[in-house]
Design a binder for these strands. Structure first.
Lengths: 190, 190
DNA sequence: GAATCTACTTAAGATATATTAAGAAATGAT
DNA sequence: ATCATTTCTTAATATATCTTAAGTAGATTC
């Protein structure tokens, strides 16, 4: 676990073993079973969660009572409702485990302490956040302008095992189409 | 100009006048007339541009030769194709002034120097990038899941003067609808 | 000031996607 | 293994949005 953290941060900055130790001391391990929640709509997102193993989904309930998935999270990603975390406002979305999931949790106050004791972390998170921004912009290129079919094949190509790990109706929700229509798209592709 | 920069950064970190001066020494002022380009598709985005005054659009040309606007930039925003800037890959989009525009330009190498001489800047850009990420996520909530009509009214509500400053066909492009359909939406609203 | 261009509108027909409802298949519980 | 529940598929119909084409008005050019 400490090893994962070390490997991860070393992609961005050089940290001594003591520094890794300090970071690790400021985290908690949380284990979730399938269907358990990391964050519930309406609550303030108090921590950043570094996903060690497993799979989660971000979703919200729309006016018609439908679940709308807008993000999945996998290994080595930070799981946070950033809006809620930064501005300390109630989260509009929930985060739920789709598989047995292990996360390392850093509370906001611990993170602020870490930024002070290990200022290099500012740099790491500056870079990490930039990369997240790039990722979301790339996603937008596909999801804003392309047809449902293109979005589906884009997803299959980029994360092939998703179609195994995630029920189809959730993929449909993530792609912003109805499960019925996804079914048609898949049929036509044969 | 230096004043703008100072006010801006002071929202995130405390900078002395000397530090502001150092930052300012590492920027260039660029003035653009309407229709001039800050960045052209295929070129590497070599600088971050801080928009002092004016209005720009980000767009790309799709397979059918249509311009696709995916972002506007206004005062106090950083104008960058981050993917191109960070990874030094050719930009897939162009950035063009829609009005007389003034930007402060920081080259990548100058920015790296500044991160070293004024480490607090890491913190500033960490926070700025987080805020950009939050903004893009909020935009996604509207643009991924809502109908064309809702997207239009959301834009009108959030940036009312846009409908004056930007031609309607560009707004349609930004909203991912055809100008004809936007025309219909507007008609129905009366 | 006429001619040309550009942005905007209107309307008819076409297409992509949603909705509804029903049945089939898979999964989980007893 | 059986039953119940959840997920997936199929098909008919409905709706949102696009495409094409034509027309109008304002801006720009000669």
């Amino acid at each position: 676990m400490k090893e994962s953290l070390k490997n991860y941060f070393n992609k961005y900055i050089n940290l001594s073993d003591e520094e890794i130790e300090i970071i690790y001391q400021n985290t908690d391990v949380t284990k979730l079973n399938k269907k358990e929640f990391l964050l519930k709509e309406g609550k303030i997102c108090e921590s950043k969660y570094f996903l060690i193993e497993g799979l989660v989904r971000f979703f919200e309930i729309d006016n018609n009572g439908n679940e709308n998935i807008n993000q999945f999270g996998i290994e080595n990603w930070w799981i946070t409702d950033l809006d809620s975390f930064i501005n300390e406002t109630p989260s509009r979305q929930s985060v739920q485990a789709l598989e047995k999931t292990i996360v390392l949790q850093i509370s906001k106050s611990n993170l602020e302490k870490l930024y002070i004791s290990i200022p290099k972390l500012e740099r790491a998170f500056r870079i990490i956040t930039e990369n997240m921004l790039i990722a979301i912009q790339r996603k937008d290129e596909v999801y804003m302008k392309k047809t449902s079919k293109d979005r589906y094949y884009n997803l299959v190509e980029k994360i092939p095992d998703f179609t195994q790990r995630v029920p189809q109706y959730m993929i449909a929700s993530y792609l912003n189409i109805t499960p019925e229509y996804l079914s048609e798209i898949r049929k036509k592709s044969n």
